[in-house]
Design a protein around this nucleic acid. Structure first.
Lengths: 332, 332
DNA sequence: AACCTTTGCTCAAACGTTTGATGTTGAAAA
DNA sequence: TTTTCAACATCAAACGTTTGAGCAAAGGTT
């Protein structure tokens, strides 16, 4: 089946191409009956306007790109879902790109976006990214840019995350509140500002409640394997520890494993709490109490912010925060 | 920064627009030094061809769409990852759409794809979808279409899944092999052919080993909550059951919960096995033995199949299968 | 010297749409 | 009867690129 164009409709209706165009756009210059006829023919021909031609005219692509380090993680699928909804709601297209956590790839993708004339980009930077020049270039080319979740600040690109430090504090304070005196916090890749903020929140909660921060209060791990090894060792040696805090889902499941492996019971022998998107905590048994960091909410907020920028609103290149909530399940 | 066009380069170099176009495309008609100069100027102006203009010419969009019921599930993120890689490798764009498991939305999205001139569509149909006319229309418009994971057959649209019945059999046979005589299989939404096939595999394994299929051998549930309720009841009443098989990750985590809730120990009191993408089994403790259904592998295979179609290869509208492997962890 | 080839480029049309300017009616107002 | 003005429609240019056809000049062959 060949695709029909305005020309085809024009031929069949005896109108001119521009007449048809206006009729389909409900332009007041066109007589109602004419419009009706045009619409009928258009329908019969299964007409769809060619978006390339339209965008060529209007100089925009009606496209938003999302760049994530990987989708195969706890938080990102939800994030993508939230973004996708808002974007479709605005009648835009979503193109989805993965940087595989590599800076070089991230730069390529940005070039790609520039070529594609994307109107906006939502990006969670790779772990390797340390400067934002590529994003600035994108901005200069007229695209709206918003950073999400993992962010770097340079004062000109708005970014949106949860209040990491507050989330961390909330979780830690809850443990203390429940009577725990000696606990360990497990943290991820220290290259990310997210990690530093979450460590800060953890420490601040301890200080606030006059609990000494010892050498083994904070465990920084490189990859998942590390958690099991280091935590097992720590819990074995230091039996006074009664609670574990993990900064992410990835670490949570590892800690869960380690604890079970040692034959410890949650929450009787040891309490476990995490910052989480809320999925893993439900899967595990017992349900893990967590500070909920909803990917969907962040996605919606980020996309909404982006469309504000697109509509011409001036948005400062600063932090825009999303709320977190404590979800009490059965692990503390 | 304004975006530069061929015209701008033409003005600066004194060449004609077509000359510039050919120079940038390394056309033999253009003198080497001229090409060099054009490239320099293009670089200086930060020139990128306008893809809308290009696609308007070439009548294609270099775009593949993926339509999934939801991404927020175990299998789909991995699937998306696999697809995304192949698509980018071919220099195509990926647009990502969600049907929210609604047939009406799915039809809208297909219309959308038609409008967008997408070259190909990878789709996992919604639970509500019972006919494929919308996909046929898409095919007629010249797009390549491949179904993934959840599929419906009509003989003209190729589809790609694991061999569901074989996977189910593999898991069940493993249980039997390990000495289990009385087991229950838990299955999902019976509207999907996937479910029927997996039930069939389960039953076939039992028959093959002369194990009677009783009324309570098969548990069909509507949603997650159901699993916990029904399974608890069943295990409570029927203590001769020594193993549970679940057809998906979603059911697996529910069953895991129910079993733990009852105070039963895996694998000592009861064995648990599942068809799974391999993530949840690692999170849980002990690790759950499963038949691995890799989203990434399926994604790669599906996208590869799609590009074969795009390159003109004739692909029958039938099943194309992907291998599954049994991963032995500690739950049986 | 007349002819052919090659080299290196330009012209112009085409892709499908949008839109400001312009043209043609017919009917109402002067 | 002439003017005026809606109402409805057409014309033509423009968006940025690609591409077949055409053309001038330089060099090579008889």
């Amino acid at each position: 089946m060949k695709r029909s164009t305005l020309k085809d409709i024009a031929k069949l209706t005896g109108l001119s191409i521009s007449g048809v165009s206006r009729a389909l756009k409900d332009h007041p210059d066109i007589a109602p009956e004419t419009k009706e006829k045009v619409r009928e023919v258009a329908n019969a021909l299964n007409y769809h306007p060619n978006p390339n031609a339209q965008h060529l005219q209007s100089k925009q692509s009606k496209t938003i790109a999302v760049i994530l380090p990987e989708v195969n993680t706890f938080f990102f699928p939800e994030l993508l879902q939230g973004i996708s909804n808002v974007v479709e709601q605005h009648g835009y297209f979503l193109i989805f790109l993965q940087s595989d956590n590599r800076f070089s790839r991230e730069k390529e993708l940005i070039e790609y976006c520039i070529q594609m004339f994307v109107d906006g980009v939502l990006i969670s930077v790779s772990a390797e990214t340390t400067n934002l020049e590529h994003l600035l270039k994108l901005q200069e080319m007229g695209a709206a840019v918003v950073q999400i979740d993992r962010v770097l600040s340079n004062g000109t690109i708005p970014f949106l995350t949860i209040n990491d430090s507050a989330a961390s504090m909330k979780a830690t304070a809850y443990l203390i509140d429940k009577g725990h005196k000696k606990m360990v916090g497990i943290f991820d890749d220290a290259r990310l500002s997210m990690t530093l903020l979450r460590i800060e929140g953890f420490e601040r909660a301890l200080q606030l409640h006059q609990i000494a921060i010892e050498e083994d209060s904070i465990l920084i791990v490189q990859d998942g394997e590390d958690v099991e090894f280091k935590l097992s060792k720590l819990l074995d040696e230091n039996t006074s520890i009664t609670a574990v805090f993990t900064m992410s889902d990835k670490l949570l499941v590892r800690a869960y494993h380690a604890i079970n492996q040692l034959g410890l019971k949650i929450p009787d022998d040891i309490a476990l709490i995490s910052i989480s998107d809320g999925k893993a905590p439900q899967y595990l048994f017992p349900g893990i109490t967590h500070v909920r960091h909803s990917g969907e909410v962040v996605g919606i907020a980020a996309a909404t912010l982006l469309f504000k920028i697109l509509s011409g609103e001036k948005i400062p290149g600063q932090l825009h925060e999303v709320e977190t909530t404590l979800v009490e399940l059965d692990s503390v």
